Amino acid sequence: MGAVDIFGTKSNVAVYRVRLQVLDKIVGGVPSSESVIKGWLKSRMEVGDRDLQELTQKTLLERFPDRQPTADELADALLESDAAPSINGFKRIPETGELAYEGRCMKAALKEWANSAYPGTDWDGKTAADTTVGRPLPKGFRKGLMATISERAFVVETFIGLGVKEPTGVEERIKHVMTPQGPRSSINRVEFVQSPLLEFELKVHDDFLKPEAWGRIWERGEDIGIGSDRGRSDGKFELLAFDRQ
Rank of each mutant, 00 (worst) to 15 (best):
R232Q: 14
V170I: 15
V15F: 07
F154T: 10
A100G: 00
E73K: 03
K175L: 15
G163T: 07
Q21L: 11
M106G: 02
A153T: 03
L60R: 02
K91D: 09
Y101I: 07
K58Y: 05
M106H: 03
I93E: 07
L20N: 01
E98V: 09
G231T: 12
V170E: 04
R152G: 00
G103E: 06
M106S: 03
P69Q: 06
R244M: 14
R184I: 13
S150T: 10
T158W: 04
A117I: 11
Q53F: 06
K111T: 07
E73F: 09
P119Q: 11
I217Q: 02
N188I: 04
P119L: 11
D51E: 13
S116E: 05
D51R: 12
D72I: 09
H176Q: 14
A14P: 02
R216N: 11
H205E: 13
R17C: 00
A114Y: 05
M45H: 02
A117H: 03
L137E: 01
E171I: 13
D130Y: 06
P138S: 11
V36D: 00
R67H: 13
E34N: 14
S43I: 00
P183M: 12
W218V: 12
K107G: 10
V133E: 09
P119S: 11
P31W: 01
A117S: 11
I160L: 09
R189S: 09
Q194K: 15
I6N: 03
A147R: 13
N12C: 05
M45G: 02
F208K: 06
I226L: 15
L41P: 01
V193L: 10
V156K: 15
L79R: 09
S33N: 07
K210W: 09
A71C: 00
F64M: 05
L23V: 12
R135E: 09
Q21E: 14
W214A: 08
G39Q: 05
D234G: 02
S32D: 05
S195Y: 04
G231N: 14
K126I: 08
L20C: 05
D229R: 15
E73Y: 03
G125W: 04
F192T: 07
F242R: 08
A128D: 15
S185C: 11
G89A: 09
R63H: 11
F159Q: 09
V155A: 10
E46H: 04
V177A: 12
E102A: 12
S81I: 05
F242N: 08
V30S: 11
R135G: 00
N188P: 00
F141N: 02
V36G: 01
V4L: 07
I6K: 10
M1T: 09
E157T: 09
G39L: 08
K42G: 03
P65N: 01
L61W: 01
E62T: 08
T96R: 04
L20M: 14
G227E: 06
S116H: 11
W214L: 08
E199K: 15
D49H: 06
S81M: 03
I224Q: 07
K111H: 09
R152S: 10
V204T: 09
M1P: 01
R104C: 04
D66I: 01
P138R: 13
W123H: 06
P119F: 07
V36Y: 00
A129E: 15
G140H: 10
F208T: 00
